[in-house]
């Protein structure tokens, strides 16, 4: 399923300088797990305050790419990462960089909701307390729950177990928890794929609100969802970034039909 792509955007190395400054800049990135090359020579960048989406078939390496951006591969044995990943100008993989610091600035939300088996309040408060924050916790809880659109639904039962929430609510709680540390970037790994259509829609709306203040990197295999939210779009196939550019241009280009059909074909 090779894609033929317009030559002007071929290999997707449009440079960061053209419209926005880059928050994250990935250059010639390769990832090898064991003996398997998962990513090969990937270049892409993420502008501030927008949604950058990466789509591709399962196994194309899009989730692996996302996990590189907050160093989640640190805990997996026999992994080799080559190339550069810069976050606001600093190399994430340089010596002396504290992975915990990286993750407070770059938050992450996963495919399945991951509420800790505690109260709704504690899910967020604990996150702050672990980082030594003692003051203004309840204000912060309220503000992130509001930001994730959950406050009105849970304000009367903050001390109830987070496991009593519905799947969509749990996912929004996971987002609120990630927002509690006020990250500059939020990585979202197929945050809607485990949810029902209505909850999906809520998450989509939430992303559109959040992008005003937060930089979002989204990985998904739903092309229509990517179309609704994306500012920039990258398409990954077989561990390489086949195309990368402004989302509107890519969706308008003549190859979009083929892209769509290919994506549907490989999606799920």
């Amino acid at each position: 399923m090779l894609l033929t792509l317009p030559s002007d955007r071929g290999n997707g190395t449009s440079s960061p300088q053209d419209d926005h400054p880059a928050v994250i800049d990935v250059e010639a990135l390769s990832l090898t797990v064991g003996t398997r090359a998962v990513l090969r020579q990937v270049n892409f960048w993420v502008p501030a305050n927008g949604i950058t989406t990466v789509v591709g078939p399962s196994g194309s390496g899009k989730s692996s790419l996302l996990r590189i951006l907050n160093r989640m591969w640190d805990h997996v044995p026999r992994v080799r990462i080559e190339g550069h990943v810069r976050f606001s100008g600093q190399d994430l993989y340089a010596r002396g960089v504290d992975v915990r610091a990286v993750r407070t600035h770059i938050g992450m939300v996963f495919q399945r909701p991951t509420p800790f088996p505690r109260s709704i309040y504690d899910n967020i408060a604990l996150t702050l307390r672990v980082h030594g924050i003692r003051q203004g916790i309840s204000d912060r809880v309220e503000s992130v729950l509001s930001a994730s659109g959950l406050w009105d639904e849970v304000k009367d039962r903050l001390l109830a177990s987070a496991l009593t929430l519905s799947g969509g609510q749990q996912q929004r709680l996971s987002i609120a928890r990630a927002l509690a540390l006020n990250p500059a970037v939020l990585l979202m790994d197929e945050p809607q794929s485990a949810l029902d259509p209505r909850s999906r829609d809520q998450i989509t709306q939430l992303m559109l609100t959040l992008k005003k203040h937060t930089t979002i990197v989204l990985v998904t295999h739903h092309l229509d969802e990517a179309k609704r939210v994306s500012d920039r779009l990258g398409v990954m196939v077989g561990g390489t970034m086949e195309v990368f550019g402004p989302a509107r241009e890519i969706f308008q280009s003549e190859s979009v039909a083929r892209l769509a059909s290919a994506t549907q074909e490989f999606g799920q």
Partner: peptide, 27 residues
């Protein structure tokens, strides 16, 4: 303990001992 729970605790910038006490131990 599901991988995602451990990962999401790590993604909050927690250290190994914090992930252990707050996520793995309760499970």
């Amino acid at each position: 303990v599901p991988r995602d729970w451990v990962d999401s605790a790590r993604a909050l910038g927690w250290t190994e001992h914090e992930v252990f006490w707050h996520v793995i131990w309760p499970h």
